[in-house]
Amino acid sequence: MEEKEIKNLLDLYFKGECTPAEKRYLESMFDQLSMHGEFDEKTIDREAVMHRLKGKIDRQIRRERFITLPVMLRVAAAVFLITSVAAFFYYKSTGFSRVQYVITTVPKGQRMKLTLSDGSTVMLNAGSRIRYPEKFNRETRSVTLLEGEAFFDVKRNDEKPFVVETPGTQTQVLGTAFNVQAYQAFKEVKVTVMRGKVAVKEAGTGEQKPVLLLPDEQVIVNTATGYQTKKHINANESIGWMQGKFLFRNETLMNVALILENSYNVKIEFNKETTKEIRFTANFNSTDSLEKILFAIAKANGITYSINDKIVRF
């Protein structure tokens, strides 16, 4: 295992950009693997040694208010080294050393199309961020939508399910077309099916029964509670953004603001918290000026706004 590969995985872990599966594996490896001088990975009692080592670090952390800065730095270094060892075994046991990941971020005001190594395509909305392998070479084809919105058109492969992970959900398909909206500020994830069938469940729930979706069906998952709402909709409206349309349906102004921020590269602020929760329904085109949209929002809801140096205030 190369030092660079270990560092990359740790960077993703500490930034919160590991997939739920990677995070769970890393954390479980911390309890299972060991580092105690020189060791033979085939014969050492990894679980017992790591349990003792983890306990020692936990005790040091509880005493941190009484220790000097150099000692605290040594504790931090120990934690880093132990986690690096966990990362080493994680890569070694799963074959991750052969997988190179790419993180693509779409600038505000733009959209981007990606073609993955299996021929599946992903259309990313403005301000979105996705993590995917350069080449799929494991049992599943797994990508992570870290932020934003994406439309997936998946090439069918009965032997390798396609999995989309977000900070709150896991969506699995064989071959289909569907939209995933996973803006972290929304505190909910929406999965909408255009073609085929998908299975959606809350991330990290083990054997939880997934929600099955057919065309023109959508599930909304509350990322805080895990509560799921399934409903029938016009799926074409969920991908209006791909045709340059803003289709707001009973959306809070806070959510509308985020979409406009990403599309027009501005910052939108609210003077009152209650204004954020006002709900709004309207259709616009991306060719409409920001001023036109803001005027319509303000007039429909009896509020005022101002623009100063790309900062909008309601």
Results as ranks from 00 to 15, higher is better:
Ala300Arg: 10
Leu145Ile: 09
Gly168Ala: 15
Gln184His: 09
Gly37Ser: 05
Lys108Arg: 15
Asp309Trp: 00
Asn157Ala: 12
Phe162Leu: 01
Gln100Ala: 05
Val102Leu: 14
Leu145Trp: 03
Ile220Pro: 01
Thr281Val: 08
Lys190Tyr: 00
Arg52Met: 06
Ile82Tyr: 10
Lys56Met: 12
Gly168Arg: 09
Thr281His: 06
Lys190Trp: 02
Glu261Val: 13
Ala126Gln: 06
Gly95Pro: 07
Ser306Leu: 00
Ala224Asn: 11
Glu22Gly: 03
Lys54Thr: 01
Arg138Leu: 15
Asn308Ala: 13
Glu251Arg: 10
Thr275Cys: 00
Glu291His: 13
Asp45Ile: 04
Asn125Arg: 04
Ala177Lys: 14
Thr144Lys: 14
Glu38Ala: 11
Lys15Asp: 15
Phe14Asn: 14
Leu9Thr: 11
Ile82Met: 00
Ile44Ala: 11
Thr115Trp: 02
Phe30Cys: 05
Thr287Gly: 02
Asn308Gly: 00
Ser97Asn: 09
Arg141Glu: 01
Lys135Asn: 09
Leu212Arg: 11
Glu139Lys: 14
Phe314Asn: 02
Gln100Ser: 12
Met72Tyr: 12
Ile239Met: 04
Thr205Pro: 06
Thr171Gly: 03
Phe314Trp: 09
Ala150Met: 07
Leu114Ile: 09
Gly175Lys: 14
Asn271Leu: 04
Val266Asn: 05
Thr104Leu: 09
Ala126Glu: 12
Gly109Ala: 08
Val154Leu: 08
Thr83Tyr: 03
Val75Pro: 03
Glu269Tyr: 05
Lys7Gln: 10
Glu188Phe: 03
Leu26His: 06
Ile233Leu: 04
Ile130Phe: 08
Arg59Val: 06
Phe178Asp: 05
Lys201Glu: 08
Leu145Tyr: 01
Asp45Ser: 11
Thr144Trp: 01
Ser238Met: 06
Asn8Met: 10
Ile103Ala: 07
Val106Thr: 11
Arg62Gly: 02
Ala76Thr: 09
Ile293Thr: 11
Arg65Gln: 10
